[in-house]
Amino acid sequence: MSETRTLLTDTADRLFTDLAAHPDAPFAEVWPSIAEAGFESLLLGEDEGGFGGDWGDLFAVARLAGSHALAAPVGEAAVAAWALTRAGLTPAEGLATIAPAVDGCVENGRFTGSLKATPWGGAAQTVVATHAGSLLRLQTTDCRIESGHSPVGEPRDTLTFEGAVAEAAPSDIDLLACGAFLRTAQIAGALDAALAASIAYANERVQFGKPISKFQTVQQTLAIFAIEAAAVNSAGQAAARAADAGVADFEFAAAKLRANIAAGQGAALAHQVHGAIGFTQEHPLHRLTRRLAGWRSEFGSDRFWAQRLGRRVAGLGPDGLWPELARRSDAA
């Protein structure tokens, strides 16, 4: 790991650990400390006032956010700032987030339509969206906000605009895929954290006169869990590497799909090992597992990415998949 990444992850780990100690703190008190640390400008160049980080750095930070069950759009804000800069649009004012889905149209520089399930959409001032080959920059002062929530209670708001001023620029940035990458990183972190908690619990919980970790059946369950967590961590890091080398649409799709599969299985195994205590409000496990439940559907479900990837692979033909896999990794 590079020195700058170590510095970055040390900072993130410290800050997210502090914030995790107060999981019920209001967002208005949480966000300023994250903004102050500069994570929003993670992907911006140093000449743009940013950290000069790459997708590997973003993976590392979003992964830590996931492992601490952080209730804040750290990754969304970083991607929003990056997308606005790349597309040459006005930088964000205050908190910026990204919309996973756009339903509407732009006419004469004005947007009419809705952005569904936008993470912290109501708290953000600026929302960035991908629409018909363009990137849109919208202000939430111009919209109606309908509150929605993920299973764990994070805001997933629907924002409805009517003839709102929209800055737009042609762009090939796919914010759905970028969001999928963020959720992959968070799932990777949350699975590792839930695994660590499950191992610790299995080592301390005594039944039949010994820690339950000494039973082979529990050991095998935790081994399966570790394999799933390893798969997502590997997929996410490989996707980041591909993004740092060039276009990573294939890798973002494959990594989110693999993460979705592991999220479901990992959460179930964590609860199985924890027994009834993990099912209580008091025990912190649910902060991870309820997020995992939501993240699987966000920025592309299993079916969505499987279908998109499957059509693409089918289009390559029977002898086309392997050369494409090889070509993509050789270019990285």
Binding site: Q237, A253, Q307, G310, L325
Partner: peptide
């Protein structure tokens, strides 16, 4: 080249798993 949805989904899932294993 234009698979029915159930096969497209299956090809996509197997590809994602294959790609992940190759990275590992």
């Amino acid at each position: 080249p234009d698979p029915e949805p159930v096969l497209a989904v299956l090809i996509g899932r197997l590809t994602a798993e294959l790609w992940t294993l190759r990275q590992m």
